[in-house]
Design a protein around this nucleic acid. Structure first.
Lengths: 107, 107
DNA sequence: AATTAACATCGTAATATTGCAATATATAAT
DNA sequence: ATTATATATTGCAATATTACGATGTTAATT
């Protein structure tokens, strides 16, 4: 097969895994860090900064947008991609709830 | 292609992405939650509880072990898989540092 | 209106992941 | 010693992901 059996898990488990999965690529970690360090955030900078082709960066940005972590606004002929701080904080909280409620142990 | 260009990222970025990636599958989230809720944690229970084949569960356990999140001890003819609380806390802290240092914004 | 610049999307090749049956291994029970 | 039980490993098929060139699209510039 090769297809994840989403149906056998809870919505919470699938959502959590989805967040983790999107963050689970170094290019996407790097993109978030770079955007966070800039005051202007334009996609073309990312291509030079990260060192992947423009099409590839665009694809990674799309995935970060898919879970609401980034929002992009058209700014002339460029794009201004920003971190959605509200969403960012919400996800951080959800991950912390997961970590805090899942660390008990038997041995 | 199809191969992640690990060399162009920092070790920190690759490590972070690796943690996220391992947690980025609902079966692995479910396994961690189940183990955390049990006092005894035996692999065979997991097969029935999660609903994936024994070989598949074994594979997921291996990945969780690969980043040190689980430790397994032989207990008779069963295995006792436990969460490595120390490692768990370390990773949680690293993720929080990432979240806290990466949420500034421009718009 | 043609051109340029900045992305986005499509198509595709290479590689990775998911899942399982079959098989191997290791221990407990008989 | 043989058998049963629990888990790991191997091999493989199906699907997903990564990456990029080529091509669309949109908006500013000329």
């Amino acid at each position: 097969m090769g297809i994840t059996k989403t149906q056998i898990f809870t919505e919470q488990q699938n959502d959590l895994a989805q967040f983790f999965k999107v963050l689970g690529h170094p290019a996407r970690v790097a993109i978030l860090q770079y955007i966070s360090n800039q005051n202007t955030c334009i996609c073309n900078d990312l291509v030079e900064e990260i060192g992947l082709a423009q099409a590839t960066i665009s694809q990674h940005l799309k995935e970060l947008k898919s879970i609401g972590l980034l929002k992009g606004e058209v700014e002339g002929k460029s794009m201004c991609y920003c971190i959605n701080v509200e969403r960012w904080t919400t996800i951080q909280n959800q991950l912390n709830v997961f970590f805090n409620t899942t660390k008990s142990n038997c041995c």
